[in-house]
Write a protein that binds this DNA or RNA. Sequence first.
DNA 1: ATCCAGGAAAACG
DNA 2: CGTTTTCATGGA
Length: 281
Amino acid sequence: MPTITLSSSQPFSLDQTLGCGQVFRWDHAENGWWTGVVGNHIIRIRQDGSRIAYEGAPEKFIRHYFSFDHDLESILDSIDHDPFIHAAIDQCRGLRLIRQPKWECLVSYICSTNSNIPTIRRRIATIAGQYGREIRLNNITGYSFPEPFDLACSPDGLDGCKLGYRCDYVYKTAGIITDRKKWEKSITAMPYEAARKELMTLPGVGPKAADCILLFAFEKHESFPVDVWIRRIMQQNYLKSMNTTAPLTHREYETIRGFAREHFGEYCGYAQEYLFGARTG
DNA sequence: ATCCAGGAAAACG
DNA sequence: CGTTTTCATGGA
């Protein structure tokens, strides 16, 4: 079993990183082992202090996926601007923003709207099981995430995946992306705001989903997704004069993400994920 | 049962 | 333009 030894100056927590809710395809097994599908790999991975044991993918792939190249110590210093975020950093230290497969991340966050995390996980697993390709690692079986074409050309239009009203969004977006071979490079090359507008032209992708996709798959670390949890946290601790009961309007979304970008700086997406990871309730 | 969840789009005024 | 309603599913 290959291992990676982490430098003591670069904090990493496998549990925080995979358990914080940014990704939906990892399962916590026995003895600290995690199992997940990433691209065409089934990966098994476990952390013991600074030692990472893994199988199922090359070391380079693991290092890239978990963003071991991020200077996390410096990033956390750069967002540590008040006691509240400081406590969240203490609680979730070692959480890293991972580099998710882009198409899967796009579909995942279309499926995430107005749903809780266990429900989202089941939807993604069902889509993969139904339309993905079977892959194996020793005695473990998993399913790769289907390509845009596979979903766009599914005879049943993703019926039976229990996506509710999101089913049509995924199906239509799959059709659009199938015809746009260079969409990943195109979005990657755009600055954050332009990429955001472009993603929001896709059916089922609004401000929040676009921000999640940009943060979790396109390395746009200035993105600050505002969901019901983050909204509550920001209003209770930073923007106390805002109305907390009415539905979130576009203008309030803009106020919150604008404040966060200003307050936490260019890595406010990291701040967002630490606040989300430390949420209670 | 009732309310809520990593919301978005259509309808409305 | 900004606000309200509707949408389908499952957790708690």
